[in-house]
Each structure stands twice: as C-alpha cells, then as structure tokens.
C-alpha cells in the first residue's frame, strides 16, 4: 500500500484506524503551520511596530482587496481539501464489508449486553476474532447511548426505537476500551467495557468455553411460539399472514407499491409497528408488540426468522 511510504505512518488497529490517524496528523500539520505563521507575524508586528520603536510607518497598504481575495481563496481551497479527505475516510468507516459475523448489542442504563449468535452472552465485554469484519446490530432499551472504541477510531450513537448497524474490525489482538460516549444518566461514566480481540483459534476456544443457554435462533423459536406469532405466521394457520420462511434478506413488495428489503430493521418495525409497512396482498391485522417485548427478545425473534432459511436460498 502506498501509505507505507509516508513517514510516521502506522497501520492502526482497525482497517481505517491508520487513515484516521494520518488525517489527524495532516490536520495537526496544517494547523501548526497556520498557527505558527500567525504567532510569528503577531510577535513580529508587536515587536517591530511597538509604539516606542521609531520605525518608518509610511506606505501603509491601502488597497486591501487583493490580500483579502488571496487569503480567502487560500483558506477555502485548503478547507475543501480537508473536507474531501475527511469525507472519503468517513465513508470507509461506515461501509458494509462482506462476510460479516453478526453480534447483537443491547445498550441500557448502564451496561452493554452482548449476544453472540451462538447464544453466548456477555456484559460490558465483547470478544471478537481479529481480522474478521464484525457487524454489530445495536439497539437501546431506554435512552441514547453511544458505542465508542477509541482504539478502533470508531463510534456510533445507539438511538432507542431503531437498529443501528456498525461494522468493526480489529487487526491486532488485545484489550481495548469500550466507552459510552453519549451522556445517559447517573452511571454514564460506569457504562464502560472491554473489547477483547483474539486470534481466530483463541476466539473459537473462548466461544466453546462459554456455556450458551442455547443458540439465539432456538430461543427465538420458543419465543415465536410463546408470544403467539406461530398462530398466524405458522404453516397451516387459518389466519392469512405472510409465511416467514426464507423471507430474510429478500425484497418484500408493500401494499403501497414500494419494495423494501426484509432486513433486521424491517422485521423489527414489523413487530413493533406492524401497520406502518404492510406486505402487499395482506390485511393489516397484526397487533403491535410495542411495550410487550424488550430489545433482547426482539433480537432473538429476528435471529429465529433469519434462521428460517433466509440465507442462500
């Protein structure tokens, strides 16, 4: 990679981490130059033109516009360059890489609850394998939180009422801070945790050592029956409701003519706000489960629906 030829470049712990650090260094250099020039001029003028110094003060610049135009243009061009640089990395940070491993994160006052798809759960800790993109599906049970891993140069708010995807990848094994960066109440500063990035083999060993109650999808399946979802969405039910087998990840035509992809957000909304997006050809019959289930149950249901042969079929 060409960046390796830049002095002081280091790759960082996440794929974009090095780029963000390089951007930071760039900003630092530009700022230092501007600040240095300014302080130099201030000091120079203050000394040279101090009132007690009998120096020639004639020929003051009266036509100012060409100075104005040049420094306005110079700052504008410089700022635009910084803007483009910053924006290009920003899109890298929030892009969606292929082959992801999904992990569910539920934020609540004042802890991070992590659910691995295998059913392993942890609190205020997240174990991940290195060099593998992880897709975090984050939800908040109460107020706005913000998932912040300084070492990976990544942060995103977790707003209640919606799923937030966030892709993270750690390239170096180690223990990193996890902070809640959005003020969330009394123990905001206690809502911290640890990211443990491990080699793939260590990660597999760690997963195996945890005692999963049962895989998430399986728990979701029993919830699906307990909550009565299977009464309508099950095969052979009398109520005409869409079958959910294989629906995950597929386009769903809606009653209003539009088409959405049946992703986590869509399924979540369909459970909580069933009337907002009605699948084409069905009556709006489903009751809302708003307030009846919490975020952790929701993500189990989604894992279950996802497991119903949505992938690859």
């Amino acid at each position: 990679m060409w960046r390796q030829w830049i002095p002081f470049w280091h790759p960082g712990i996440s794929p974009h981490g090095g780029d963000v650090d390089l951007l930071f260094s760039g900003l630092l250099v530009v700022s230092s130059l501007v600040l240095g020039l300014l302080f130099f001029l201030l000091a120079l003028f203050c000394v040279r033109y101090r009132a007690s110094n009998p120096i020639d003060r004639g020929h003051q610049t009266s036509k100012s516009w060409h100075w104005e135009v040049s420094w306005t243009a110079a700052s504008l061009i410089c700022f635009l360059a910084l803007f483009v640089w910053g924006a290009s990395i920003y899109f890298q940070i929030f892009r969606t890489p292929p082959e992801e491993l999904s992990v569910f994160v539920v934020a609540k006052q004042w802890m991070w609850k992590v659910q691995h798809t295998g059913g392993q759960s942890e609190i205020n800790a997240l174990h991940i394998p290195v060099n593998r993109p992880i897709r975090l599906v984050m939800a908040s049970q109460d107020v706005i939180h913000s998932f912040f891993i300084p070492a990976l140069r990544v942060k995103h708010d977790v707003v209640p009422g919606r799923y937030q995807d966030l892709e993270i990848t750690a390239q170096v094994p180690g223990h990193y801070h996890l902070f809640c960066a959005e003020y969330c109440g009394t123990k905001h500063s206690g809502m911290t945790g640890e990211i443990v990035a491990m080699e793939a083999a260590d990660y597999a060993a760690w997963l195996a050592s945890q005692t999963p109650s049962s895989p998430l999808a399986q728990e979701g399946g029993s919830l699906f029956r307990e909550l009565g979802c299977s009464g309508c969405h099950g095969i052979g039910s009398k109520v005409r409701a869409p079958l959910l087998e294989g629906v995950y990840g597929k386009p769903v035509p809606l009653a209003d003519g539009s088409v959405v992809t049946a992703d986590d957000k869509y399924i979540r909304d369909s459970i909580l706000l069933p009337r907002s997006q009605i699948a084409a050809g069905y009556e709006p019959l489903m009751p809302s489960f708003q307030g009846k289930i919490d975020e952790e149950q929701l993500l189990r249901l989604i894992a279950y629906i996802k497991s119903l042969g949505g992938h690859g079929s």
């Binding site: 900003l27 300014l38 910053g86 890298q92 940070i93 942060k155 995103h156």
Partner: peptide, 22 residues
Amino acid sequence: TIGGLTGLFLACLAYDVHATDT
C-alpha cells in the same frame, strides 16, 4: 485561532467520528 483550527478537526467527518463527545 486555536479554537477555530481545532474546529476544523471536528468538521472533518472521519476525525469527528473519533473526537465527538470526547
């Protein structure tokens, strides 16, 4: 000027992801 220049850091999207709320 120091405040203004560091404002550029924060206006810069990628760095703001790291620096905001810190």
